[in-house]
Amino acid sequence: MAGPLRTAEPSAPPPAPGGRRGGLSGYLLLLPGGVWLALFFVVPTATLVATSLYDPSGSLQLGYRMTGHVQNYADSLQDYAPQLVRSFVYAGTATLACVVLGFPLAYAIAFKAGRWKNLMLVAVIAPFFTSFLVRTLSWQYILGDNEALVSFLRAVRVLGEDGHLLATPFAVVTGLTYNFLPFMVLPLYASLEKIDHRFLEAAADLYSSPFTAFRTVTLPLAMPGLVAGTLLTFIPSAGDYINSELLGNPQTRMVGNEIQDLFAAGDYPTASALSVTLMAAIVLLVFVYVRRSGTEELV
């Protein structure tokens, strides 16, 4: 049915003057999304930026005066640069771990799973049936000082006599990796699953080794999924604070923990400045990354 694309459908209301040519319906369709974005993104972001410029000596009792105090950014960076850097290091490590674990998994589901494909996909999503908090808390148990895993690692001398896993950077990165792995696997699977097998057969016919075929055919075609997956993993992990709160120690605190504590302590200006810095840093990193991986059109 190609007709409706050129002329208005007979049953549709009479076209406005100019009809499709005015493009008005396009804007109308964008309206709900636009209103949503304005209310829940533009307004809060503007408020956040404004708050980050308040006089830092304000309090609930005195109120907060707008003084355009740009110094808040310098002060917050001076106090919290280590946490900011740490957040990106942890998020980057977790993302890398997700790629290493997620790519073979997505590949296996897409190409090798046969009739188990649907079951395996369900298994990837199944953890979402329990809450994020419960899943993270269960890692407290798995990595606990007196549980089987640590006892075993102590026995085989991987860990020292008094070594532990919980309350270490390892535990935090493990938690992040575990919690965000499905966000890597699903987009990767979606990309891999669409790859036409005949391309690989053609590559083989042209004397490419399986590795070369993977490198020159499968990987480039999987790029959109890989880029989407890394973004979906990296961005939320960089801002996460639950994993560090429940699995970390005072030396593993991430920028999210600090923002949360500063808001609770009533230091809105510093907390807001730190949030804006985090947001800007993420946007910058993502921008550079997407540019470099040359997939602007695909994401």
Binding site: A38, L39, V42, A50, T51, Y54, Q61, G63
Partner: peptide, 16 residues
């Protein structure tokens, strides 16, 4: 729509 957000630019009153 950003205007109400920008009103925050005037500061926040005492919460007493």
């Amino acid at each position: 729509v950003g205007v109400p957000g920008l009103l925050a630019a005037c500061g926040t009153e005492s919460q007493v």
